[in-house]
């Protein structure tokens, strides 16, 4: 994240863009709802739409692509080792006789799922921890900030690498948990800052003076008002976690064989990248394309949600 998200997301203010236009008469036609406005602004951005279309295609490919061939990702075709793409093996065969097409798509499935789930978990941790710290302040705040600072100075990759033998044979969901635990800190800090400013809003005061319990205030008033930040954060995190998972798996710390992910596919193919490029190119290309799409969508979403971020101005 290059810009501080706090600057980008001025906490949900009802003013749309022009101060003169906000005082709309209720009876003067049905005003545009916020959701429709965001959708309209998003649809105006060609790059965002294109990326969304490509990403949907990638998902379709990952889940329906394997049905196009009779080869399974763990089949061995000893007769065609290292042959190039043809009608039998769409993308050729690797050095031990596995079908590159089937394997890559299987890996893509896993990476996409891990990326999505881990991004959701990451943002959820950040939202809960950050808003609780920001709303309550005091001792709770100090504790949460201390944990954030601690996690920020710990080398996450190294710890994941060290922990990975202990997780061998366990479900990949553990990997998701670990990726999330080491990935929520920056967003957590931002959420904490927003919670601290939202805490001083009159509507939060009003709720407090009605006697609404603190956790209910957080759930009902704080989190919905940060929704735009959180949504964009999830999107951007998807790209990040896919890369993190791929990196770990590449070095053998993440997804363990016989399970396949983009990381293991690429690490298996890496020695042949220069000699038999077909084994490597497809997977690498798909990975780059996926992450690129996700980040373009994230940008477009941010511009759509926050009109002051520049490019969406009329």
């Amino acid at each position: 994240m290059s810009m501080s998200p706090q600057e980008i997301f001025e906490v949900a203010s009802p003013a749309v863009s022009d101060p003169d236009a906000t005082d709309q008469h209720v009876e003067a036609g049905q005003p545009i709802t916020r959701g429709r406005l965001i959708l309209r602004r998003f649809l105006r951005q060609k790059s965002g739409i294109a990326a969304l279309v490509v990403l949907v295609l990638i998902f379709l490919l990952a889940y329906f692509g394997p049905y196009l061939t009779h080869w399974k990702f763990d089949d061995f075709d000893q007769t065609n080792i290292l042959t190039g793409p043809d009608s039998n093996h769409f993308l050729g065969v690797d050095e031990v006789g596995r079908d590159v097409y089937a394997r890559t798509l299987k890996g893509l499935q896993k990476s996409l799922v891990i990326g999505l789930v881990a991004a959701l978990v990451t943002t959820s941790i950040a939202a809960v921890a950050g808003s609780i710290a920001g709303y309550f302040g005091g001792f709770i705040d100090i504790t949460v900030v201390w944990i954030i600072d601690l996690l920020l100075v710990l080398p996450g990759f190294l710890i994941l690498a060290i922990l990975s033998p202990a997780l061998a044979g366990k479900t990949w969901l553990w990997l998701v948990v670990l990726l999330a635990v080491f990935g929520w800190m920056v967003t957590g800090r931002v959420v904490r800052g927003m919670a601290m400013s939202l805490r001083e809003r009159d509507y939060v005061h009003a709720a407090k003076f009605m006697g609404v319990p603190a956790l209910t205030i957080i759930r009902r008033h704080l989190l919905p008002n940060m929704a735009s930040l959180l949504i964009v954060d999830v999107t951007i995190n998807v790209g990040g976690t896919i890369l993190a998972e791929t990196g770990l798996s590449f070095f053998g710390f993440g997804v363990q064989p016989p399970d396949v992910s983009m990381g293991t596919v690429l690490s298996d193919a890496q020695p042949l990248a220069t000699t038999y490029p077909h084994v490597f190119m497809f997977g690498a290309g798909l990975l780059v394309l996926t992450v690129l799409c996700v980040s373009v969508i994230g940008d477009a979403l941010r511009d759509a949600i926050d009109p002051s971020s520049g490019s969406s101005r009329l």
Binding site: D202, Y203, H205, A206
Partner: peptide, 19 residues
């Protein structure tokens, strides 16, 4: 709290925009 309530200054800020 049922017997004592408050009206704030800024009508923009005192109502949760998401509710």
């Amino acid at each position: 709290r049922a017997d004592l309530s408050i009206v704030f200054q800024d009508p923009m800020a005192s109502l949760d925009p998401r509710m």
